[in-house]
Computed example of a mutant assay.
Amino acid sequence: MVRFSNNLIGVLNIITFVLSIPILSAGIWLARRATTDCEKFLQWPVIALGVFLLLVSLAGVVGACCRNSCLLWFYLLVMFILIILLFCFTVFAFVVTNKGAGEAVSGRGFKEYRLGDYSNWLQKRVDSDKNWRRIKSCLQDGKVCRSLQEKNQTWDQFVNYNLSPIQSGCCKPPTACNFIYVNETFWTKPVGYNTSVPDCNAWQNDQSVLCYDCQSCKAGVLANIKSDWKKVAIVNVVFLVFLIVVYSIGCCAFRNNRRDNAYTGLKTYP
């Protein structure tokens, strides 16, 4: 008789199988409709995740419900590798996002960010020309700065507005430049402005340029990544506990399979 653990593993993997279908469909949809670099970058990870969940859940269902020890062993092996990888990634995410924070600016409602405040590993990722071209393309496609400009704020409204890290780093020049405000993404460079700050020289009022090549923009992206990775790491801890519980139940199901198969063998060959 199929044990309770086998039934539970079967139910959990049926749910996973059902969830893998919309994930795989979304990846295929992106592959057919993708027009921007960001969408094209996402399509293959989404498809890979959908296929992975589909195959693993099928192995789990057949292995548990049909008492196929080979498939269930494969399922447990994949689960074990996934637990190890997830644990390593979670620890890594906490380590690389441990450094870096925005600096409050006197008389401003927003913070500004410096690239040197973040971990060396993250700095190297955004300092790579190839990586930054892709990130910059995503920022431009996302129209983050255009959405800020559309607010059409006065100077007093702007300085008290809580800008996101990316808006603060990429859509305006650093406060140290002392540029003259025209609107959120258009600033006049006065005579004798602070040329010692590289970002002041990099700033352009061209809406396709702005401060996308500034160090402050890269720092703003890292601040956003840090926040997102912290949230992902916390979710990973919860998911990791769930996977360990499922893996333990799967081990019970595997033991049941071997016991049932051994019992069946004894009945066949008295």
Rank of each mutant, 00 (worst) to 15 (best):
Q157S: 07
A176E: 10
Y118R: 05
V126E: 02
P165V: 10
W203L: 01
F94G: 00
D260V: 13
D199Q: 03
N201V: 06
C217G: 10
F239Q: 07
S196M: 04
C252N: 12
Q204I: 00
A176C: 05
L243T: 09
K136T: 01
D141V: 01
D141P: 01
K189L: 01
F41M: 14
L55C: 13
D156Q: 07
G192K: 06
N160T: 03
T264E: 14
N236A: 15
A64C: 10
Y113L: 00
P165N: 07
P173F: 02
Q215C: 00
P190M: 04
T154N: 03
R114T: 08
P22I: 12
Y193A: 02
L240F: 15
C177L: 03
D117T: 10
V221S: 03
T188W: 03
A233Y: 11
L49P: 06
I14W: 13
F17I: 07
A101K: 06
D141R: 05
A31V: 01
K130H: 06
G192T: 08
V78Q: 03
N68T: 09
N183T: 07
R32Y: 09
V238A: 15
V18T: 14
F239V: 15
L240Q: 12
D228E: 13
N7R: 12
G169Q: 03
S5A: 14
M1K: 13
K231D: 13
S128F: 11
D117K: 05
P198H: 02
I180Q: 09
L12S: 14
Y118C: 01
S168P: 02
V238C: 14
K111P: 04
N6W: 03
L76G: 02
D206W: 03
K226R: 15
R108K: 09
S69N: 09
W132V: 03
T175A: 09
D199F: 03
N201E: 06
D117P: 05
F186W: 06
L163R: 01
Q157L: 02
L24I: 14
V95D: 08
I15Y: 10
A233G: 11
G250A: 12
E184K: 05
N261H: 10
P198K: 11
S248L: 14
G142R: 12
Y181F: 09
I84T: 13
G265Q: 07
G116V: 06
K267T: 12
W121Y: 13
I21S: 12
D206H: 05
F74V: 10
V246I: 15
K136Y: 01
L163Y: 04
A59H: 02
V197F: 03
A48K: 11
K189G: 08
Y247V: 00
A176V: 15
N205D: 11
F242Q: 05
Y193G: 06
N261P: 00
T188E: 05
F110I: 04
E150Q: 12
L148I: 08
G50Y: 09
C88A: 12
F110Q: 11
S137W: 00
R108T: 07
N201R: 07
Q43G: 02
S227K: 15
I135S: 12
L243W: 11
D213N: 11
Q167S: 08
S227E: 13
L148Y: 04
W229N: 11
A233M: 13
D206S: 02
K99V: 05
D127K: 11
V159M: 04
D213P: 00
V221H: 00
N68M: 03
